[in-house]
Structures are given as structure tokens and as C-alpha cells.
Simulated scan of single mutants.
Amino acid sequence: MPKPVHLSRFNIAALSLGLAFLYLPILILVIYSFNDSRLVTVWGGWSLRWYREFFKDGAMIDAALMSLRVAVASASIATVLGTLAAVALSRGAGFRGRMLFSGMLYAPLVMPEVITGLSLLLLFVALNAERGFWTVTIAHTTLTMCFVAVVVQSRLVALDKSLEEAAMDLGCDPLRAFVFVTLPLILPAVAAGWMLAFTLSLDDLVIASFTTGPGSATLPIRIYSEVRLGVKPEINAICTLVIGLITVLIVVASLASKLSSERGESAAPL
């Protein structure tokens, strides 16, 4: 049984300062989203005024819906491709070009987003593709697929391969063994990967700004264009709604990842 960890006063103070540095600005933003005043720095009492203003703002609503559509589409495509890539890396250890494939798959993890966005823009221009919903979706799929692969591969490594081998000994081909044996065990990890991809897509600004076109601005782009002219209280309300949505998704993804880890440990060889 692990021994309890006793934190010193210095560690507690350092932890408190770190958490305050990270989350105090967010807390202030959330509080001021309920401010009745037109001035973002002057408190005028509690009110839902700016939330009502947001739901009356057609341009913001359109941008929010565009972001949701892009996030759902790109996360779904990235989950399928990332899961297949994770299976290839964890179950096909000896195939030729594995190192090159792994490096290309995980490159977006360390590649600056401005380079990724610029390279995709040049690609779409060379293909004479009209920039809009699908170009942003493809760009976000490129960005998020590697994150899904990391999450799913970490769960596949913990699983016992003998379970799949036993299924194939009983008459299943590799595809059926994966669908009926492996996939149910890694499903929480797949769901966690989808939620992570959805969150990253919903939050992206740099890559979307390179690959979007007229009439297809996402919510982060719209917020950035509004902020350049001055912060309006409505922006606080919008950001609070986004923070709430992402918080819910992170909590659900964490619970799904924990469940996947527990199931992976129970299926791992003793």
C-alpha cells in the first residue's frame, strides 16, 4: 500500500501560486461574464445580459455552429484514422517503414502550428481547392489524428495479444478478432481520443486562420477579430460557454481514459 505523501509549506505555497497563475484569470473572466456593465473592467452587478446578447448575435452563432460542425467532423475522421494507425504501430511491430510512418504520424505533435497551417494553405492553393468547411476539417484532422493515435496506442500496449490470438484460434479472422475482442476493450480510449480531438479542433485558431475562407470563419477566428477592436462583455460570455463545454469534455475524457486503463490492466497478462 503506497505511503501518504506529506507536502511541506513551501510545496503547498508553490502549488497554490501555480494554480492561481493558471486559473485565476479564467475565474475572473467567468465572473465578469455576468457583469451588467458595458465596461469589462467596471462591475455593474450580476446579470445574464451578455449571454442574451450572444444568442441574438447571428454572426457569432454562425461561427459557433461552424466550429461545432468542423470539430465533430474532424474528430470523427481523426478517431478512425488515429485508431487504425495505433493498431498498425502496436500490432505490426515488424513492418517495413515503421520508423518513418511513426515519425510522420507524430510530427504534428512537435511541429509549430503556423508551419502546419502555412503548408496546408500552400497545398490547397496548389490543388485549387476552395477554402471553407472541408479545408478546415482536413487541416484539423491532420492536427488531431496524432493525439488520438497516442491515446489509443497507450491502451493497446497494455492489452494481452493472446486474447486476439485465442479469438483467431476459434475461427475469427484478424478483422473480426479486432472488432469483437480488441475494439470493446479499447473503446473508452477511442472515446477519450475523440473528445480530445474535438476539444483541440474547437480551440484552434492558427491553423483555421490559414485554411478557412469567406463565410466559413470559426468561433476562435470571430472572437479574435472582435477582440482586436476592443474587448466587449459579450466576449466574456462566449468564452465562459466554451470553457464550460471544454471542461465537461475533459472530465468525460478523463473518466473514459481511467476506465480504459482499468480494463486494460484487467486484460493484461499477470
Rank of each mutant, 00 (worst) to 15 (best):
residue 6 H to W: 05
residue 7 L to T: 00
residue 10 F to W: 10
residue 10 F to E: 13
residue 10 F to C: 08
residue 12 I to S: 10
residue 17 L to R: 01
residue 20 A to N: 02
residue 21 F to G: 09
residue 23 Y to S: 02
residue 24 L to W: 01
residue 30 V to M: 12
residue 30 V to C: 11
residue 31 I to T: 03
residue 31 I to V: 15
residue 36 D to N: 10
residue 38 R to M: 10
residue 41 T to R: 00
residue 41 T to N: 04
residue 42 V to G: 00
residue 46 W to I: 00
residue 48 L to V: 09
residue 48 L to D: 03
residue 50 W to N: 03
residue 50 W to P: 06
residue 50 W to Q: 07
residue 50 W to R: 03
residue 54 F to N: 12
residue 55 F to V: 14
residue 55 F to Q: 04
residue 55 F to A: 11
residue 55 F to G: 06
residue 56 K to T: 11
residue 56 K to Y: 06
residue 58 G to E: 13
residue 64 A to N: 06
residue 66 M to Q: 12
residue 68 L to Q: 03
residue 68 L to R: 00
residue 71 A to E: 08
residue 72 V to K: 02
residue 72 V to C: 11
residue 75 A to T: 04
residue 78 A to D: 10
residue 85 A to V: 01
residue 88 A to I: 02
residue 89 L to P: 05
residue 94 G to K: 10
residue 95 F to G: 05
residue 95 F to M: 11
residue 95 F to R: 06
residue 96 R to H: 02
residue 98 R to V: 01
residue 100 L to R: 02
residue 105 L to K: 04
residue 106 Y to E: 13
residue 108 P to M: 09
residue 108 P to E: 13
residue 110 V to T: 11
residue 112 P to I: 01
residue 112 P to N: 02
residue 113 E to Y: 02
residue 115 I to H: 02
residue 115 I to Q: 02
residue 116 T to C: 15
residue 116 T to Q: 13
residue 116 T to D: 06
residue 120 L to Q: 14
residue 121 L to P: 08
residue 121 L to T: 04
residue 123 L to A: 15
residue 124 F to A: 14
residue 125 V to L: 15
residue 125 V to W: 11
residue 125 V to K: 12
residue 126 A to T: 12
residue 129 A to Y: 05
residue 131 R to Y: 07
residue 132 G to F: 09
residue 132 G to H: 07
residue 134 W to F: 15
residue 135 T to C: 14
residue 137 T to E: 11
residue 141 T to E: 12
residue 142 T to W: 14
residue 146 C to T: 12
residue 147 F to S: 11
residue 148 V to W: 03
residue 150 V to H: 03
residue 156 L to E: 04
residue 160 D to T: 07
residue 160 D to E: 11
residue 163 L to A: 13
residue 163 L to W: 13
residue 164 E to M: 13
residue 164 E to T: 09
residue 165 E to V: 05
residue 165 E to P: 06
residue 171 G to H: 09
residue 172 C to L: 10
residue 174 P to A: 09
residue 178 F to K: 07
residue 178 F to D: 11
residue 179 V to H: 12
residue 182 T to Y: 03
residue 183 L to R: 00
residue 184 P to Y: 03
residue 188 P to E: 00
residue 189 A to F: 00
residue 191 A to K: 00
residue 193 G to S: 02
residue 194 W to P: 05
residue 196 L to N: 03
residue 197 A to L: 11
residue 198 F to M: 14
residue 199 T to C: 11
residue 207 I to K: 05
residue 213 G to W: 03
residue 217 A to L: 13
residue 220 P to S: 06
residue 220 P to M: 08
residue 227 V to N: 10
residue 229 L to R: 10
residue 230 G to M: 00
residue 234 E to R: 05
residue 242 V to D: 04
residue 247 T to I: 07
residue 249 L to N: 15
residue 249 L to T: 05
residue 250 I to Y: 05
residue 252 V to G: 10
residue 252 V to Q: 08
residue 254 S to Q: 15
residue 259 L to G: 10
residue 261 S to Q: 09
residue 262 E to F: 00
residue 264 G to P: 04
residue 265 E to T: 08
